[in-house]
Design a binder for these strands. Structure first.
Lengths: 85, 85
DNA sequence: ACATATTGTTATGTTTACGCAACAATTAAT
DNA sequence: ATTAATTGTTGCGTAAACATAACAATATGT
C-alpha cells in the first residue's frame, strides 16, 4: 500500500542511489528499500525527495498504484498490439 | 524540524480529533501527537490527511515553519499596533 | 447540577524506518 | 582483463511512529 516513482525520477535526473541519498541526507541503502517499496518514508523524507526532483509529493508518492509511464507520456492511442498486419 | 497545520485545518473543517482520527484511520491520540509536533507522520498518513482536507501535502506539512495565519489570509497591511491613536 | 465530549498528558508495548556493515552480481570504464 | 561503480540483498541495532489505556481539566449540553 502506497507506491512511489523514486526510481523513475532518480534515473530521469541521472542520479545514482548514492548521489540521491546524499542529496536527501539518508543512507544509500535506504533509497534501495524505498524504490523496492520495502518501506514507507516519513513526510519529512518525502518532502525532501519531492524538493530534489522539483515536483510535488503527490507526483512521487500515491495511495493508489501509479499507472505505467506509457499512460502518462506520449504513448500511441492503443496500437502496438497487432499494428498494421 | 518539520511543521504542520493539522490543527488549523481540522478546526477549520469543524472536526474533533476523534473524528479526524476515524477519517484517516489512526488512534485519536496520534492526532494529538501530530498537532503538538511530537512526531513526524509517514507519507502515507500525510497523504490521507491532505486528502481529507482536500489540499496538497505541502499545504499541510512543510520543512520550514509555517508563517502565522495572518500573513496568509486577509490581514491589514501592518496596523493593529497603535491604530488611529 | 449532572453528564458527556473534547482536549492535554503520561506511560507501556509493538512495529518499522533508517543507519551501518558486509558481500554477491552486474555493469561500465580503462 | 581488471578495476571501479552501481545495484540487490541480508542481518543487526536504535530510534521513533503508532496503538492502547488511563486520568485530569475544561468545556458543552441538557
Amino acid at each position: 500500500m502506497i507506491s512511489n516513482r523514486i526510481q523513475i525520477f532518480r534515473t530521469d535526473r541521472g542520479l545514482s542511489r548514492k548521489e540521491l541519498a546524499a542529496l536527501v541526507d539518508v543512507n544509500p541503502q535506504t533509497i534501495g528499500f524505498l524504490e523496492r517499496g520495502s518501506y514507507t518514508p516519513s513526510v519529512e523524507l518525502a518532502l525532501q525527495l519531492a524538493r530534489v526532483f522539483g515536483v510535488s509529493v503527490e507526483a512521487v508518492f500515491s495511495l493508489e498504484p501509479f499507472p505505467p509511464l506509457a499512460a502518462q507520456i506520449g504513448a500511441p492511442a492503443s496500437p502496438p498490439k497487432g499494428d498494421t498486419p
